[in-house]
């Protein structure tokens, strides 16, 4: 052990402890990303093994730009990401404001809010699929009662299906946004509120000029995390709609999955996956640049 003493030994030990973790992450996260990029430059079709894997440069990306299906999926993805994150962060903020007050049983409420977050997404998807069923779903009964004739096939109509998937996502993950905002709220010193109240500021003014600016970093973090997670939506679509009806819920991650694993276009599918990766990366970088400094201040608070 003595040989390990001193700064040099310490550094060796540090790398030794870090190495297994880094090895796993490099081998199964960073290398696959690189490998995806490599695959996306080749033409690989699983049902045509005789084709081999010729290098085709940027052909797959050129197709990605010109293919109407891909553009449609990109649009659907953006609509899903936009609608679900906005709803989740605003609902989450309201929930956080309610949870920030002290009342009896607050711990229980906080746990209850966490339940949708903890439920497996597949279970939540089947649950909503059952509730939204066109003949015996609870939703139809709540909306139309016994008037069976006007029951809606929510998941089978292109107009409703994306809304239904968004609803399921909002239900499941608003709590996560709420918790992050709540953590931000709890860093605000209480005496600031009392001082503001003494100055005669009403509840709205206190929220607008005190709470909002101070909780903004936490809001931004919630937005970043929800946005990046929303880009990765898959389970809900797989179970609830399979990308249908008429591709109305065919988000990019599902589109890429179908291309790669159902139609067997490994190269083109990899190009789709690289596109998803770049979108997520871009969002995270933009947000982090916008809020990075405030974030650091938030951390020290």
């Amino acid at each position: 052990m003595a040989a390990l003493a001193g700064p040099r030994g310490e550094r060796l030990l540090a790398w030794g402890l870090l190495l297994p973790c880094l090895a796993v992450v490099c081998a199964f996260a960073f290398w696959p990303i690189v490998y995806s990029v490599v695959l996306s430059l080749h033409r690989i079709v699983l049902s045509l093994p005789g084709l081999g894997a010729p290098f085709v440069g940027l052909e797959n990306y050129a197709r990605l730009l010109s293919e109407p299906g891909a553009r449609h999926s990109a649009g659907i993805t953006l609509a899903f990401v936009g609608a679900s994150t906005l709803l989740e962060v605003s609902l989450g903020t309201l929930m956080a404001l309610a949870l920030d007050k002290s009342f009896r049983g607050r711990g229980l409420v906080r746990a209850a809010v966490l339940v949708p977050w903890a439920i497996p997404t597949v279970v939540a998807s089947q649950m909503w699929r059952f509730i939204l069923n066109d003949r015996y779903g609870l939703m139809n009964w709540l909306v139309f009662g016994g008037d069976v004739g006007s029951y809606q096939a929510w998941l089978a109509s292109p107009g409703w299906a994306l809304g239904a998937v968004i609803l399921a996502d909002v239900w499941k993950t608003s709590a996560f946004a709420a918790l992050i905002v709540l953590a931000g709220l709890q860093t605000i010193p209480r005496d600031l509120y009392e001082a503001a109240a003494l100055d005669g500021a009403g509840p709205w003014q206190r929220f607008r000029h005190l709470t909002l600016p101070l909780v903004l970093p936490a809001l931004a973090v919630a937005l970043v995390f929800r946005t990046m997670d929303a880009f990765r939506v898959f389970d809900l679509v797989y179970v609830m709609t399979q990308g249908g009806p008429a591709n109305a819920t065919n988000v990019l991650q599902f589109y890429g999955y179908k291309k790669m694993f159902a139609e067997g276009f490994m190269g083109y599918g990899s190009a789709v996956s690289v596109l998803v990766f770049v979108m997520v990366l871009a969002v995270s970088l933009i947000y982090l640049k916008l809020v990075g400094r405030r974030l650091l201040r938030g951390e020290t608070a």
Binding site: V45, S47, L48, G69, A262, E263, G264, F265
Partner: peptide, 9 residues
């Protein structure tokens, strides 16, 4: 065709 899933799409 062997690419029926894609052709059908």
């Amino acid at each position: 065709t062997p690419l029926y899933p894609a052709v059908s799409q």
